[in-house]
Design a protein around this nucleic acid. Structure first.
Lengths: 326, 326
DNA sequence: CCGAAACATGAGAACGATTTCAAGTATCAA
DNA sequence: TTGATACTTGAAATCGTTCTCATGTTTCGG
């Protein structure tokens, strides 16, 4: 079933059918004829032919490190809800945490002629910038602040600083369990926020009080062990993620430290586990879903306006104070 | 940059360039000329034109109720890993738990000429079957067993039965907190497994000992409250999901019931929260990621073979016994 | 050295839409 | 009546590939 057959059945030219489909001039009489034929045949125009002709695919490429993550799946949910509304489809590119895949997908999406790209970034190499340069469609980076590109990101630095300062209003001796330092947002900004909070309150932090490792419970456990073996008087533990905090809590319970009386513990992300853990872990709520929505709206605007003035949006946060803080 | 320009620059016909791209006959000499021109220009063939011509898009439509869910995102992760390997891209269709959207997407994907569809189902209406009938590409249903279509699903019934029987080897008076009954797998199969376990052990279960509600912590809390207000001697609580179990545990702690001494509690899904909750909640591990991989492989085989013999794959499970069981 | 098989090439017709252009028909004010 | 304006229509070009043919060229066994 193609447009020619429909045209023949309705006794008009295919141009008229095309106009019918795209609200151009078409008389009431022919309109009705065409409508009837289309209804009877269940005709649906070929999306491929339309794409070839119009250079619009209606696809948005979404590049993510992995979908099986609480924060990322929430961002994607937000992206999906806005894009669905605007009539776009998501072409999902999951890199499985492989940087090279990220670049490969950038190239592949270019070939597939997506109308725009949202990239949930972790860290950016020179190769990334090179690949991004070649992109001809609008691009929005989510969850990371990147020079030269529009982006929506979180105030990791501010949140870490505020949280640390709050904790230090009660605590005296703080340590930080961090994530991989290559990750700009989670790895570095949170650490810097922690350090600056200490600095502004005139607390000295020695290098060995800041560890780092993967985003895992066991990293939290092992790092806490290392820290407390080194210095038993630590009374405030700022962890870069909730999972890490869970691991730390597990270790602290094991050695009989009371939370929060002896040690305060905090995480980041406001995940379900933080509120299920005992004691409930104080954490920072980031508006993941909302940020996904914002990134999607931003992208759609860039596509529509066609004048791509760079925008930068820093999302707020909410500190969630629960049992693990004094 | 199109194939004609490349052909002109390389001094050959566009057919030869096309053959170069699709490994047909082409002499070493011309091969080299074309290679050079393509390298210099950075030419990439238009995916749209290829799709129009070949009727292959390389896209697989994946219809899901929502991405922001532990089990579903794991399935998608599995799907993504296999499809990525096989050179397919995922066209994600998130229905946001709206049945009508599911049908709309089925129709839309048909228009977009995806090469195949994976649908993560919850429950199927007549309209679903009607829409599915019209699908001309291979379709695999994941997480639900459906007549007439290939599917990969979980042994919810068997798991619920085994788990319940195990719990009843210690417990005497069991109750069930279920999910929405329209959901075939989670809502019904788990309930039936629970009921049959009781039946086979000659335990009578009255209707009011089986509640149902949404997949939420608060459902667990409220349902537990209702059940224990009605009968304080319940000593075994089988919950249809981990989240529900968390809510139930929360209520039981509140009224001072000891777990597992006075009440055993179990969940389903082996989510992170189950292992973080205190006490650790006994649960059932389903191979979500693996099942996603299986569904994807199955689909790819159907696409390649082109003979679509229906297959049905029931995935195994693993009961995770922890502190919440005696 | 001949005929068949294998290799190599380009012309041109698809694929199924949109869009430009030119031309034709009402409508209507002057 | 005329000319301008707004509608309405279809022919034909176009988007960028692939693929079928038809036509040549090698290669090679007999």
């Amino acid at each position: 079933m193609n447009i020619n057959e429909i045209a023949a059945l309705a006794g008009v030219s295919r141009a008229t059918v095309s106009r019918y489909l795209n609200n151009g001039y078409v008389s009431a009489e022919k309109h009705e004829q065409i409508r009837k034929v289309i209804e009877e045949t269940g005709y649906q125009p070929s999306a491929q032919a339309q794409m070839l002709r119009t250079k619009k695919t209606g696809f948005i490429g979404v590049i993510i490190p992995k979908i099986n993550s609480d924060s990322i799946s929430r961002m994607v949910q937000g992206i999906s809800s806005v894009l669905g509304e605007k009539g776009y489809q998501i072409l999902l590119a999951d890199t499985h945490n492989d940087i090279k895949e990220e670049i490969r997908y950038l190239k592949q999406l270019r070939q597939n002629h997506v109308d725009g790209i949202i990239m949930i970034g972790t860290y950016f190499t020179k190769e990334h910038y090179k690949a991004m340069k070649d992109i001809t469609v609008p691009l929005v980076v989510l969850a990371q602040c990147v020079k030269d590109y529009s982006c929506v990101y979180y105030d990791d630095y501010g949140a870490a600083k505020e949280l640390t300062k709050y904790a230090l209003s009660k605590g005296k001796n703080a340590a930080f369990i961090g994530a991989i330092p290559e990750d700009e947002a989670v790895g570095r900004e949170r650490l810097y926020g922690f350090l600056d909070a200490n600095f502004e309150l005139d607390r000295e932090i020695r290098e060995e009080y800041c560890t780092n490792g993967p985003f895992s419970i066991s990293n939290g456990y092992e790092s806490a062990k290392k820290l407390f073996t080194m210095d038993d008087t630590i009374d405030t533990l700022i962890c870069a993620t909730d999972k890490i905090a869970i691991g730390a809590v597990r270790y602290l319970k094991e050695i009989g430290k009371k939370i929060p009386e002896e040690v305060q513990v905090t995480g980041f992300g406001d995940s379900l586990v933080a509120s299920v853990c005992e004691p409930h872990i104080s954490t920072v709520h980031f508006y993941y879903q909302t940020s996904g929505e914002e990134a999607a709206s931003m992208l759609v605007n860039m596509i529509d306006d066609n004048k791509s003035v760079r925008k930068e949006m820093k999302m707020g946060y909410q500190i969630v104070k629960t049992e693990s803080l004094r």
